[in-house]
Design a protein around this nucleic acid. Structure first.
Lengths: 340, 340
DNA sequence: CTGAAAGCGCTTACAG
DNA sequence: CTGAAAGCGCTTACAG
């Protein structure tokens, strides 16, 4: 059995309160007593029981994250970087991270209810915000602390961190256009996602600002997997005037576009340019290395976790809604438009 | 404030013990009392406080997993499928899943110690077992419950689930050899991993059994990223007699091999055959779809979690060490050797 | 500076 | 079948 406060108190010849003071440093204790307690702690290899502490304090020091596998495929590498960020920041503040999945047959809603009602966590992190996001209305109604990765799409006010997707795609489009591309295909994200609209807006705005026409045939919706990108390019190549560049709304889709292009004998970066969005590790390691718009997912994980912890601790974070500037990451999958 | 047992007891006019009996179904309660209690629970929207329950029972009903980012890149999609399996199985048994990361500058050992000592979880899941695995010796010494994904490499006895990697690579090699390939390159995994040795053995055994020579120049070690595979193929292609097929020890590396091949103008599946190992979703969605050896990672997650829960509950699992047969997943990245 | 005591929200022998 | 009471391992006013 592991040692308890009581064991330490007995060995040190003091009360449990005193031991607690020493452990937590909340109350001044005389040096001599302190020494005795510390020695007892060491000799018993005492470690506080986090559960007892939680019960007493009515807080769990735990953050929760429910993996949102509605739009994304289960293995989207995106989430692991995000998790790493959350986890590292949580650890820094002595918080733990609880992960839940949505088992087959269970509803997302039921999982949220279980986590909230059982008071297993002090707050939740929500990713991939959606239009009419049930998760957000539920948590808001419950008054349960949460921070989202992704902004609101319906005029609700909640704390979030997001990347300026419109600006990101706009920057990417400027890059492509400056390379001489005039016909640029766009593979959009599932429209239920709030970020899908912003990114698409960036595409349209860039066309407008550069005096280029918007061709609905050059825009298609992908499913966030490589296959989505693959099929999109197949569709584009079947057209009379295929695009010379394709902007995919996510890296995974861009990889699919690259695969399709290479299968068609096209040299990516020369015969056709391909861009992604996210800058996951997969993008940097693809061949050719993918030009993409960087979302600092790891850092966003840290930010979101940090904000949530502040909120839990009752300190209004200085910025409740953070929009990070995207960053163009130019690599080798984009090049001058053929014939330029 | 959320309702407590006491609130329910008061409203129903019974003792807290009785409410507890009803909630847990541990003791028979008269139908009338039961009804009253149930009504009170409903009207107060009472949900048991898991933390209090944990403290009282000296168990947390929580499984822990510390993301092992030593050999793998942070975003390896592999882990998310694994996490999904663990999470779903945990939920089924009313267990939660606690994730920890190893923050920059912290040692893996210190993270394990913190999790174990704070008694935040009832047991741990260990993945990617290594030779001289410090994590395993530590947990064993502490008598802390754990189950591993990956077998032992040093004669230690602990519960695990693993896939027969030797057999898997052997099967894949038979497939390639039956297609007429005689010079087959192999991209091995970091040698610290126990599974690296087994897979490499499968490669060697297949050569031997088919009367083919082992050429050290056809074996190289990759770093588990696409780049590892990419560089491996570059190396192979620079040789006087490049291989006609390449077996990569992981899907991610196989994708890198495909990328490199396509960049060199080779049609994968015709000019060169490529195989992977894992069968992540990335493999199924790659182009051409990747022939690979399937590890049912999601199912392994469920198995491992299930075994751990049994162990925690004091029931020796019927199988303490499970080795699953690998499954050949033939898709389009492999084909007859050129000239056959 | 230190201790006795109450309490966080449950569960579980023990009586009756 | 039901209740009074102790206890899980802590923290924290409150006295002294």
């Amino acid at each position: 059995m592991a040692a308890t406060l009581k064991d330490v108190a007995r060995l040190a010849g003091v009360s449990t309160a005193t031991v607690s003071y020493v452990v937590n440093g909340t109350v001044r204790v005389s040096p001599q007593t302190r020494e005795r307690v510390l020695a007892a702690i060491k000799s018993l290899d005492y470690h506080p029981n986090v559960i007892a502490r939680s019960l007493q304090g009515n807080r769990t020091s735990t953050l929760g994250f429910i993996l949102p596998f509605k739009e994304r495929q289960v293995s989207d590498p995106f989430f692991l970087e995000f998790l790493a960020g959350i986890g590292d920041e949580a650890t820094r503040y002595n918080f733990d991270l609880l992960i839940s999945t949505i088992p087959q047959g269970a509803s997302e809603r039921s999982v949220y209810e279980r986590v909230v009602k059982s008071r297993r966590v002090d707050g939740l992190i929500v990713a991939d915000t959606r239009h009419n996001d049930e998760r957000i209305t539920y948590l808001t109604r419950q008054g349960f602390p949460f921070v989202a990765f992704g902004r609101d799409g319906d005029g609700l006010d909640f704390p979030y961190v997001d990347v300026d997707g419109q600006e990101g795609v706009y920057l990417g489009m400027q890059h492509l256009i400056s390379l001489g591309h005039r016909r640029i295909g766009y593979v959009s994200l599932p429209p239920s996602l709030v970020c899908a609209s912003h990114r698409l807006n960036g595409y349209k705005k860039a066309l407008r600002d550069n005096g280029l026409d918007y061709h609905p045939s050059l825009v298609t919706v992908g499913d966030l997997s490589q296959s989505g990108g693959y099929r999109a390019l197949e569709g584009f190549l079947g057209q009379l005037q295929p695009p010379t560049a394709v902007f995919a709304g996510s890296d995974l889709m861009a990889l699919g576009v690259i695969n399709a292009a290479q299968e068609h004998g096209l040299v990516v970066g020369r015969d056709i340019s391909v861009m992604g969005f996210d800058d996951t590790q997969l993008a940097a390691h693809s061949h050719p290395p993918l030009t993409t718009v960087r979302q600092p997912v790891y850092r966003i994980g840290k930010l979101v976790a940090g904000m949530l912890i502040q909120i839990i601790q009752g300190a209004e974070p200085k910025e409740r809604q953070v929009i990070l500037p995207p960053e163009l990451q130019i690599r080798e999958s984009t090049g001058p438009a053929p014939g330029k």
